[in-house]
Design a binder for these strands. Structure first.
Length: 106
DNA sequence: GTTGTGACTACCA
DNA sequence: ATGGTAGCCACAA
Protein backbone atom coordinates (compact mmCIF):
# COMPACT_ATOMS: atom_id res chain seq x y z
CA UNK A 1 0.00 0.00 0.00
CA UNK A 2 0.95 3.65 0.15
CA UNK A 3 4.06 4.76 2.00
CA UNK A 4 3.32 6.19 5.41
CA UNK A 5 4.06 9.77 4.47
CA UNK A 6 1.73 9.45 1.50
CA UNK A 7 -0.94 7.93 3.70
CA UNK A 8 -0.70 10.94 5.98
CA UNK A 9 -1.07 13.30 3.05
CA UNK A 10 -4.10 11.38 1.84
CA UNK A 11 -5.62 11.67 5.30
CA UNK A 12 -4.86 15.36 5.55
CA UNK A 13 -6.28 15.89 2.08
CA UNK A 14 -9.54 14.24 3.08
CA UNK A 15 -9.78 16.16 6.34
CA UNK A 16 -9.20 19.39 4.44
CA UNK A 17 -12.29 18.61 2.37
CA UNK A 18 -14.67 18.29 5.30
CA UNK A 19 -17.21 21.08 4.81
CA UNK A 20 -17.73 23.83 7.34
CA UNK A 21 -20.20 22.92 10.03
CA UNK A 22 -19.99 19.17 9.45
CA UNK A 23 -18.01 16.35 11.02
CA UNK A 24 -16.56 13.05 9.88
CA UNK A 25 -15.55 9.97 11.84
CA UNK A 26 -12.02 8.60 11.91
CA UNK A 27 -13.21 5.48 10.12
CA UNK A 28 -14.89 7.52 7.41
CA UNK A 29 -11.79 9.62 6.82
CA UNK A 30 -9.68 6.46 6.67
CA UNK A 31 -12.03 4.94 4.12
CA UNK A 32 -12.12 8.04 1.93
CA UNK A 33 -8.34 8.26 2.12
CA UNK A 34 -8.09 4.75 0.74
CA UNK A 35 -7.11 3.26 4.08
CA UNK A 36 -9.99 1.03 5.17
CA UNK A 37 -9.85 -0.32 8.73
CA UNK A 38 -7.14 2.14 9.66
CA UNK A 39 -9.11 4.62 11.70
CA UNK A 40 -6.37 4.53 14.26
CA UNK A 41 -3.87 5.78 11.71
CA UNK A 42 -6.10 8.80 11.12
CA UNK A 43 -5.92 9.67 14.79
CA UNK A 44 -2.19 9.26 14.59
CA UNK A 45 -1.90 11.42 11.49
CA UNK A 46 -3.79 14.23 13.21
CA UNK A 47 -1.72 13.83 16.34
CA UNK A 48 1.38 14.11 14.18
CA UNK A 49 0.28 17.26 12.33
CA UNK A 50 3.16 19.49 11.15
CA UNK A 51 3.66 22.78 12.90
CA UNK A 52 2.38 24.82 9.96
CA UNK A 53 -0.90 22.94 9.73
CA UNK A 54 -4.07 24.81 8.88
CA UNK A 55 -6.30 21.75 8.93
CA UNK A 56 -9.85 21.51 10.35
CA UNK A 57 -8.85 18.59 12.56
CA UNK A 58 -11.67 19.51 14.93
CA UNK A 59 -14.19 18.26 12.35
CA UNK A 60 -13.02 14.70 12.97
CA UNK A 61 -14.74 12.89 15.83
CA UNK A 62 -15.13 9.26 16.81
CA UNK A 63 -18.00 7.07 15.68
CA UNK A 64 -19.94 7.72 18.88
CA UNK A 65 -20.21 11.40 18.09
CA UNK A 66 -17.98 12.24 21.01
CA UNK A 67 -14.53 13.75 21.13
CA UNK A 68 -11.70 11.30 21.64
CA UNK A 69 -10.29 13.28 24.54
CA UNK A 70 -10.84 13.16 28.26
CA UNK A 71 -13.95 15.17 29.07
CA UNK A 72 -12.92 18.63 30.20
CA UNK A 73 -9.38 18.33 28.88
CA UNK A 74 -7.72 21.22 27.06
CA UNK A 75 -7.97 19.63 23.63
CA UNK A 76 -11.52 18.62 24.39
CA UNK A 77 -12.56 22.19 25.18
CA UNK A 78 -10.66 23.53 22.18
CA UNK A 79 -12.28 21.15 19.73
CA UNK A 80 -15.69 21.75 21.26
CA UNK A 81 -15.29 25.51 20.99
CA UNK A 82 -14.15 25.31 17.37
CA UNK A 83 -17.12 23.13 16.46
CA UNK A 84 -19.63 25.26 18.31
CA UNK A 85 -18.16 28.28 16.50
CA UNK A 86 -19.21 26.52 13.29
CA UNK A 87 -22.74 26.04 14.54
CA UNK A 88 -22.37 22.43 15.64
CA UNK A 89 -24.53 21.79 18.69
CA UNK A 90 -23.38 19.55 21.51
CA UNK A 91 -25.96 17.52 23.37
CA UNK A 92 -24.70 15.93 26.56
CA UNK A 93 -21.09 16.19 25.35
CA UNK A 94 -22.10 14.44 22.13
CA UNK A 95 -22.82 15.44 18.56
CA UNK A 96 -25.84 14.28 16.59
CA UNK A 97 -23.98 12.47 13.82
CA UNK A 98 -27.10 11.80 11.76
CA UNK A 99 -27.44 15.56 11.52
CA UNK A 100 -23.85 16.73 11.19
CA UNK A 101 -22.08 13.75 9.62
CA UNK A 102 -20.33 14.58 6.38
CA UNK A 103 -22.23 13.37 3.36
CA UNK A 104 -19.57 11.50 1.41
CA UNK A 105 -18.88 13.25 -1.87
CA UNK A 106 -20.59 10.84 -4.21
C1' DG B 1 14.60 -7.12 17.98
C1' DT B 2 10.26 -6.98 21.18
C1' DT B 3 6.74 -4.55 23.92
C1' DG B 4 3.52 -1.17 25.10
C1' DT B 5 0.62 2.69 23.87
C1' DG B 6 -2.64 5.49 21.29
C1' DA B 7 -7.08 11.78 18.79
C1' DC B 8 -10.32 3.95 16.52
C1' DT B 9 -13.87 0.25 15.17
C1' DA B 10 -16.33 -3.85 14.70
C1' DC B 11 -17.80 -7.93 16.75
C1' DC B 12 -19.53 -10.86 20.35
C1' DA B 13 -21.20 -12.08 25.12
C1' DA C 1 -27.76 -1.49 26.29
C1' DT C 2 -23.08 -2.06 28.00
C1' DG C 3 -18.47 -4.06 28.48
C1' DG C 4 -14.63 -6.93 26.98
C1' DT C 5 -11.84 -8.50 23.00
C1' DA C 6 -9.58 -8.59 18.73
C1' DG C 7 -7.89 -6.33 14.58
C1' DC C 8 -5.19 -2.26 12.75
C1' DC C 9 -0.75 0.24 12.28
C1' DA C 10 2.93 3.71 13.36
C1' DC C 11 6.01 5.10 16.85
C1' DA C 12 8.80 5.43 21.27
C1' DA C 13 11.45 3.06 24.78
Amino acid sequence: MLPTSTAYQAIWHVVAQIPYGTVATYGQVARLAGLPRQARLVGYALHRLPSDHTLPWHRVVNVKGQLSFPLGGDFYCLQRDLLMAEGVVFEQDKINLTQYAWQKTA
